[in-house]
Design a protein around this nucleic acid. Structure first.
Lengths: 335, 335
DNA sequence: TCCGAAAACGTTACCGCTAACATTGCGGCA
DNA sequence: TGCCGCAATGTTAGCGGTAACGTTTTCGGA
């Protein structure tokens, strides 16, 4: 009883056409040098002629390797992660891996669901964009014994490989930079309040406290970040603390939104209010005035994650490691 | 000679633990109502206890359906497509499908490569974000006999399902809107120059010609769009055509960049120069002045694409169809 | 001429799951 | 009592590849 066959061209079809066994065809695809040139040419000709596309599912099932890696990011629309993705993608593609992307919507439950899903798809490894996961996700990842890279932030206790930057130190640095520039009544505005934002906030507080300044000018919301929200938060802050002379926004979207709000209010930046953002997105270098920000090495994080992951996939020993990729303060016109 | 087993928990493990055959377990997962309640409960308990994760590769290989769909977008960083993706993702997830994303970098060759790759992964369908493909891609898609949705723009000759908007009509409409607002020396600035941008440009030309206006104030470049580029293009245009009174930018990034450049030059918008963008990204509603733009129903396109695709995946008849999702002119402060 | 190793290719036995069909057991009904 | 039908479960035969190992061919050197 032949099962409904997909109708697709298979190894067998190629083999029959050429007059060899399908193992030879398979070998020709995986290790061409192990097949005689005559046969190889004829196989290649047949593959071309029949438009053969290997079935990766079958290959993966048989070999135990899918040559694919899952990359989970919090958000697709947030361009912060697109650079990371580009780095990961490029590095892994070169090594012959396909990147499968998923977005968690900043939810560790959704992350858990995606880890489950991608394990079901048989990925060979994971790149995660956080160091915080549900217990069940931890269990799944441990049990699967796959290489895992946790990116963006640093942790003392990596699951496996950790590539990121010290978010708290970055928050501290921008705080210090504002202080060094002479500002004294410095505010913080933050949205989403995920772990990374909390770390930046803590760093900002560290810096202000060390300088003996008040950390009370702090406006936060769990709502997702957006340009408009930057304007709204700034408005609220100006109402509460009209004396404020600088604001560190937890990301560039908010900073740009705050800048637009200042323009709307005819508030001179940086004359009456200085603004700083975080991440170094393109927009910070395009607005007028340009925005001071913390440039995070997102592309480099992605590339490094890919590199380390490939090493591990190719059999490098498994010992947890942390890689601090640093950051850079860009002082621009807004301060 | 037992082949190295993955060490993963399999259906067989569950079956042994419960004392039934593995078919029953499989059935319990796919059609729970066809299994007696006692057995079902014990199977569920075993799945829980052993942290069983089904192997989709095996399932797909056996059933011929992978329950996954490929979504190819030109760019990850371009937030235009993130809304489409969200719509697609939501719709397909509800129906039990997993979306696998790929980005083509605006290259039809890369699109072809990705189609090949995802066919190898055994996806059950495609959502593409263009109507133009290589011949080989056409051949692959035709041969695979999979449902395909081409999105964003409209075509007379869809591969299968087509969901989008009339880019040319949209360009025409914004041109007319600018004319209706009293502008007479209207420019166009465009980057990337992909098919959609060319259509918008053609629409803009139609409108201006119909009103007897000159279409010479047109600055384009194949370079990828960005905020900075918007500023550069505007600068070039102001030099060539200092009398220009309005500019239609082929997308919102350029428009925002142009606005920033105006601010830098102390050029009043819209007093001295009016600006219009395209797509209706968040930023257009946040800048000061807010930007006139053409709001494209990206989310709706994604949702509709998902809906139609699911219908087809569930066996709806296959006749090519086009779905015009329209657009909306948003007149804001910049005009 | 014969031997033996390497190159080239084939056979077998799966990977983990599911479609299709077969079997079992039980209640209802003539 | 015997037969039917249906619900619940099992058996079989793959899906399309690949690992491991077995067999044949080739060819240089003793």
């Amino acid at each position: 009883m032949p099962r409904r066959s997909s109708g697709r061209v298979t190894l067998q079809d190629i083999a029959e056409r050429v007059g060899v066994s399908k193992v030879t065809v398979s070998r020709c695809l995986r290790e061409p040098q192990r097949v005689s040139e005559t046969v190889r040419l004829r196989i290649e000709e047949a593959i071309e002629a029949l438009d053969y596309i290997p079935n990766r599912q079958a290959g993966a099932l048989s070999s135990g390797r899918s040559l694919s890696v899952a990359l989970l990011v919090p958000s697709i629309s947030n361009s912060v992660f697109s650079e990371v993705q580009r780095g990961v993608d490029e590095g892994l593609r070169e090594a012959g891996y396909q990147v499968l992307m998923g977005h968690t919507g900043y939810s560790i439950l959704e992350e858990e669901r995606l880890i489950d899903t991608f394990l079901a798809y048989g990925v060979d490894g994971f790149v995660l964009s956080s160091t915080r996961h549900t217990d069940y996700a931890h269990r799944l990842l441990n049990r699967a014994r796959l290489p895992v890279v946790e990116t963006m932030e640093l942790t003392d206790n990596p699951l496996d490989i950790n590539v990121g930057l010290d978010q708290r130190a970055a928050g501290h640095a921008i705080g210090e930079a504002l202080i060094a520039a002479g500002y004294r009544r410095i505010g913080f505005c933050g949205a989403r309040l995920d772990y990374r934002v909390q770390q930046r906030l803590a760093g900002w507080e560290d810096a202000l406290k060390a300088a003996g300044l008040s950390t009370q000018r702090c406006q936060t919301t769990p709502r997702p970040s957006s340009y408009r929200l930057g304007g709204e938060l700034l408005s609220a802050m100006l109402e509460h603390w009209p004396d404020m002379d600088a604001v560190f926004c937890c990301n560039d979207d908010l900073a740009a939104g705050a800048l637009f709000e200042c323009q709307r209010r005819r508030l001179d930046v940086p004359g009456q209010l200085a603004l700083a953002g975080f991440n170094g997105l393109d927009i910070t270098d395009a607005t007028w005035p340009t925005l001071t920000t913390v440039i995070t090495p997102r592309r480099a994080i992605g590339e490094q994650a890919a590199r380390l992951l490939v090493e591990r996939l190719q059999g490098a020993p498994c010992d947890p490691s942390c890689h601090d990729m640093g950051f850079e303060i860009a002082l621009r016109q807004s301060t």
